[in-house]
Write a protein that binds this DNA or RNA. Sequence first.
RNA 1: GCGCCCGUAGCUCAAUUGGAUAGAGCGUCUGACUACGGAUCAGGAGGUUGGGGGUUCGAGUCCUCCCGGGCGCGCCA
Length: 583
Amino acid sequence: MNIHQTFRQHVLAAIDGLAAAGRLPADMDLARVGVEPPREAGHGDLSTNAAMLLAKPAKMKPRDIAEMLVEPLRALDAVADASVAGPGFINLTLAPGVWHECLAAILEAGTAYGNSDMGGGAPVNVEYVSANPTGPLHVAHARGAVTGDALANLLAKAGYAVTTEYYINDAGAQVDALARSAHLRYREALGDEIGEIPEGLYPGDYMVPVGEALAAEGGDAWRDAPEAEWLERFRDRAIEMMMETVRADLAALGVEQKVFTSERGLVDAGAVDAVFEILEGRGLIYTGVLEPPKGKKPDDWEPRPQTLFKATDFGDDVDRPMKKSDGSWTYFANDIAYHYDKYQRGFTTMIDIFGADHGGYVKRMKAAVAAMSDGGADLDIKLCQMVHLKKGGEPMRMSKRAGNFVTLRDLIDEVGKDVVRFIMLTRKNDSQMEFDLDKVVEQTRDNPVFYVQYAHARCRSVLRAAAELFGGPVSAADLAGADLAALDDPSELELIKRMAEWPRAVEAAAEAHEPHRVAYYLHDLAESFHALWNKGKDDVRLRFIHEDDDGLTRARLALVQGVALVIASGLEVFGVTPVEELR
RNA sequence: GCGCCCGUAGCUCAAUUGGAUAGAGCGUCUGACUACGGAUCAGGAGGUUGGGGGUUCGAGUCCUCCCGGGCGCGCCA
């Protein structure tokens, strides 16, 4: 049961009634009519903007429409009070029974509460991380990994058929450099003195095991052989081992993508040629000479003709090259083929999670998707801005080139998987964020993970105490049948109202592709619960367990169980395990 | 020089996608708490939403011009 949807239907019915009576024009566009909780709690439980939206098409004053509309709404049994306020808002206060029914529905649904059919089973592809297979994941990848994973969970909860995906960039010059790095480490494993790792190669220690593995597998067969004889083998083996590392890093974060697509695989299968022909067939490919970027002319700039895609036809600033001067495909061309591959697999909605350094890539990729699908596919790109790590009040610097970056694994070892996941989701993806390693493991209100987990632990604690009292665990289904009318304190009703907002929060966050909103929802819910808890400290009558009153206790337990379920439901979206108790 | 993102309380960030008096946490000031589990709760102070103009019933949100910060800018991926 979604209370906002239910009352939206009531509002639409009221409009229809007035239209039928000739008091409002018929056939007005009602798509934007909404029912929301008002920002200000004093304005009631629900609010609709209907009168203000209808004012223009009806050629009437918003307040006049509101006055007409409020009558049938006031007459509803579920409505305790209805009023017109401000420029034409209609505010509704609901009867307590509505909230009691709502709580019963939550208990029956369990953590499935908040599930929506908004997506209607439509396929969505979420691609994230897609780090080059040239080393372990670092902190910047963590944000993308968590954002993508939570977004995928969120969309699934909102009723989409989600496929999670990782694009392996195993075709460029960077993997040849990886192969050469592996060869050095291989020689090192055989006892050669290799000195400093040259500029342009990968100096990290993580290459040592790769060299050792190759030495163990092939002996010294490629020690002095020309590069052409070993490059391919070393490259493939190194990529394989790097991807094992990547998968293990992701697994440690609780991320497990369903599909891994190889760039090299697509190129070898001719996918790039195929999509190139499609674009060419649409007249979107030509040979031309690009202008140098103004004010930042590269030293070695010389104009030369290139094979270009008409990205400007689709909103990009300049046309983009498809081929390098040696005739091979650019990364961009390969990426078009990859997105075309997704499109052919049935995905008309795609979401890519990129790092901030790919900001300049967004327009051209969207242009390419629009072009290759002839407008049939939609691509949303979420850019994750940088994460500034802090520890002991000092910033922690990372530098992938130097090979001494802060790895994802370091971060997880330091604070734990659940903390990394939750904290990374407490900020909108396009804002830079600060991640204070000291703060996030503190058990204080300042730490949002703790604050939410503590609320859940408190709920579980009450339920454990109750189980002892009743001589066995009390099931949610059992509690749904309790007489909930005993829940009549304003702070109890306030708590149920918060829970009733969960389905709407899921839909809004899913629609906007913004999982971070769930973190704020959970924080607010936890806050309401902690507030009620403390009232029970002051006022014994508000405590949850009353040994001399089974009926009241069961109603209160239903409330507590409801909070625990909704928190668990939210944490499930984040891939965070709700804790039973805090040590 | 161009493009994208950001700019909101001293600090870190929200704001139901155009809604009502812009909200939280930290910090600061005042109170409550020998217990269903202590790390919590109640309240005060703190704002010209970087600045100017515009759109309309209504702007932190949309348009425009400045200012400041980040990222990027033809054969790197």
